[in-house]
Design a protein around this nucleic acid. Sequence first.
DNA 1: CGCCTGGTTCTATTCAACAGAACTTCGTTC
DNA 2: GAACGAAGTTCTGTTGAATAGAACCAGGCG
Lengths: 256, 256
Amino acid sequence: MKTELQTSVGRALAVLDSFRAGDQSLSLAELAERTGFYKSTILRLAQSLQRANFLVRLESGRYQLGAALIRLGEICKRSARIDDHIGPVLQKLVETTGESATLYVRKGGQRFCLRRVDSQRALRDHVREGDLLPLTIGAPGRVFLYFDSDVARPNLARGEVPPEFRTTPSRPLPIITHGEYEPDLASIACGIFGPADELVGVICLTGLGSRFQRKAAQAMGDTLLEACQRLTALLGGDLAHYAPRKPPAKRGAPRR
Amino acid sequence: MKTELQTSVGRALAVLDSFRAGDQSLSLAELAERTGFYKSTILRLAQSLQRANFLVRLESGRYQLGAALIRLGEICKRSARIDDHIGPVLQKLVETTGESATLYVRKGGQRFCLRRVDSQRALRDHVREGDLLPLTIGAPGRVFLYFDSDVARPNLARGEVPPEFRTTPSRPLPIITHGEYEPDLASIACGIFGPADELVGVICLTGLGSRFQRKAAQAMGDTLLEACQRLTALLGGDLAHYAPRKPPAKRGAPRR
DNA sequence: CGCCTGGTTCTATTCAACAGAACTTCGTTC
DNA sequence: GAACGAAGTTCTGTTGAATAGAACCAGGCG
């Protein structure tokens, strides 16, 4: 995690950020090693952090993250809403790919178009914000199917889903389909994940099938993937969902 | 929440701390009002906070807590262990009250003495670290009974608990008993709560019953209560458990 | 005993942080 | 649509907080 550290505040935050999942507590020396700061510097920063309960000093002299972080983390979890961040991302996607971009969220048994930015091309689909579509059809549908735990199981059980969709895709995200929703219409879709590891929405790029071939499709997929990763990071979700294999990826056991 | 703010780091943390439960996002003006800092100052601090993902700027220009806080909050939750903080607290309790102090945690169907500091008095009980005692007997037992959701229900259902204990106490914490575990032995007990609103342990002061009367008992109860509140705060628990009435106290609905 | 690692204190220098003014939007009122 | 006020942003001279680094202390170990 790269952080600018010209400022004293930046350094203090870097000290906090140096805690990794599974760290019970860190010694001054460990903090110094991880951050690269002088021990005297860390000592002073730590005093400020302690005053505000962002850090606590144990009897042993080791440092531990403070409870203020729990409080703020909870507030953040509740306030992280995808529509706060989606606007500029979709805009940029359309600019760089030239195709239309749409954000879908699940609404009951359907998918709901929460945000849409049209491309400038003459030939494009015409989904509008507020539209409700079948949940499991098209590239976005497959994403819901594969990654939304509330969706996949019941629908699979009820046999509403064609059998060829039931297997996990070889490369998980993004997913591309051709002519599934409408002939000559292709779409690339990718999911966005929230702090509780749940699928909060799906972004997709749609356009004429002939424009979604080979390298062009590959490139669009990459930029889409990157955008979704950035949003997931903003929402506090786990980036492990985008890893080539094994989606969930639980944290390691605490040591020390 | 009082915070020293001579240092730039302290001010930055105060900006974060100014977010209250239920705040979706805050404008620059609101931040300035809550913290009392100049807007230009906040603007600069916010830049540092943004770089480290502790704060995000929405399209609207409003500010929102960043996902780094979720990450660190989770780490903190996992690392907050009561034995890291208990030592000095028990020590201080014994010094100010003159009675022995013990920390119990639940271990299956019993309570387990995790930490003990003996008083200097000639006449005292003799619990030792590592001892296992009946879960629901004595003042600590009542605390488990009233506040540990895993305990109260099954035991009440199985009828293992005397009926006079089944009512909620009028003043919830601390709880005092005389001669319940052993004649002439009195104890005052109070619970400590963790980030998931669960009872993580119980501290109790024990001594000769004659020393736990009226004002003396009242004073001891107050210092004990204060100590437990401090520990709960350290662990990220909710202080509402100590409120005169209604134990749970859920957060208000998010507004904007 | 003497070495080494980790922690703490102290100080001179410098550069980041501050207060405050000034300026720009933007929305509201008259 | 002029005028006002509130919110946000930029800029700057001055000051003191933050820094690097040395020096010092404590304890664990060979």
